[in-house]
């Protein structure tokens, strides 16, 4: 028996409506990554995380739990959970899970800030606890009225802080803020660029060479929604890396399975498995630029000798100068 689609959709809609996120975690959990970076609050230019990297460890935990309920009688209890969740935040305990893993995902964000600073992007702020999830998943699932209400909330906060330019860190948030929000808010005039685009435009000279053969996994959203294909390749190749293209790459990239993980975890695993086979056939060091791809492909790669890493670690090694972090690039295989 599949998971109860209607109930899960209701869960997500309720959470976004009442708690501003499909996975309402504590403000501390969402913002702790920025501690010590001295980012000003707000400003005309800001970094917008959209909570995507921060949510991954808890998301993985939830996915492991819910996938156990697929084809299990316990799945029948989901409707009861939805009723309870309207009154009590059933996600409250998620702010306490996978803390070690959280540090790694926080480090990706810290690396992105360091990269932007080293490249000389100029001052940019962060909204800290006022930053909200963009509602990307709720939009994709066709829960339009809840999503549109949420978009207005996010926009109001951006206006309040006088934001004019936004630097994003993941493709889903970029697509929402650049392509989808303007359709809902006619007066929307924000300039939205991903940090990969910003770094590529600044054309910084590498401070270290990358003597690596890297298999490129393009995110569907970056490649086909945002036309961001050259930027990651250009940045890595300029530092000396050799890009290995899998069977399907660039505009014809193959999905990681992530978009259906919330409703059909079994189908998502199957797609991720097929993608990791394509990637492993091209080489053993795979790079991703979306936290959802990272999660799904990393899980699919377990035991097959392939390592999957976020691009920020490679970029930090190549362009981070003296600020090289001990974080990502030396992570586990």
């Amino acid at each position: 028996m599949p998971l109860p689609t209607s109930t899960l959709l209701g869960f997500m809609a309720d959470n976004l409506e009442k708690r501003n996120s499909v996975m309402p975690l504590s403000s501390h959990r969402m913002t702790q990554w920025a501690a010590g970076l001295d980012l000003p609050q707000g400003g005309e230019s800001i970094l917008y995380t959209g909570h995507m990297y921060q949510m991954i460890p808890a998301l993985e935990y939830v996915e492991q739990m819910t996938s156990r309920f697929e084809d299990h009688w316990m799945g029948k209890l989901f409707p009861v959970g939805r009723v309870l969740n309207k009154y009590f935040n059933l996600s409250w305990f998620l702010s306490r899970v996978r803390r070690e893993e959280q540090r790694r995902y926080d480090e990706y964000l810290r690396n992105i800030v360091r990269l932007l600073r080293t490249a000389g992007v100029g001052e940019f702020g962060y909204l800290y606890g006022e930053e909200l999830y963009t509602g990307a998943l709720v939009h994709d699932l066709g829960l339009d009225d809840v999503f549109e209400e949420h978009v207005h909330k996010v926009y109001k906060i951006l206006v309040k802080h006088g934001v004019k330019r936004v630097i994003t860190v993941d493709p889903h948030t970029t697509d929402m803020l650049r392509n989808v929000y303007p359709k809902i808010i006619p007066e929307y005039g924000l300039e939205v660029k991903s940090y990969l685009q910003v770094l590529r435009e600044l054309d910084q000279k590498p401070t270290s060479r990358l003597e690596s053969d890297i298999v490129m996994h393009d995110s569907c959203v970056y490649a086909r929604y945002l036309d961001t294909v050259e930027e990651p390749r250009g940045l890595l190749e300029k530092a000396g890396a050799t890009i290995l293209e899998p069977e399907q790459s660039g505009k014809l990239t193959f999905c990681c399975g992530g978009p259906v993980e919330s409703l059909f975890p079994g189908k998502a695993r199957e797609i991720a498995g097929r993608r990791i086979e394509q990637l492993a056939a091209a080489g053993r060091d795979v790079v991703t630029m979306c936290p959802i791809c990272l999660l799904n492909l990393r899980n699919a790669a377990k035991g097959n000798g392939t390592s999957v890493r976020d691009i920020s670690g490679y970029l930090m090694k190549a362009y981070g100068g003296l600020e090289v972090s001990s974080g990502d690039i030396v992570e586990e295989d």
């Binding site: 086909r224 929604y225 990239t253 978009p259």
Partner: peptide
Amino acid sequence: IFSCLLCKLCEE
């Protein structure tokens, strides 16, 4: 309908 990945490979 809910299994579609919205990956847009078809649109390409």
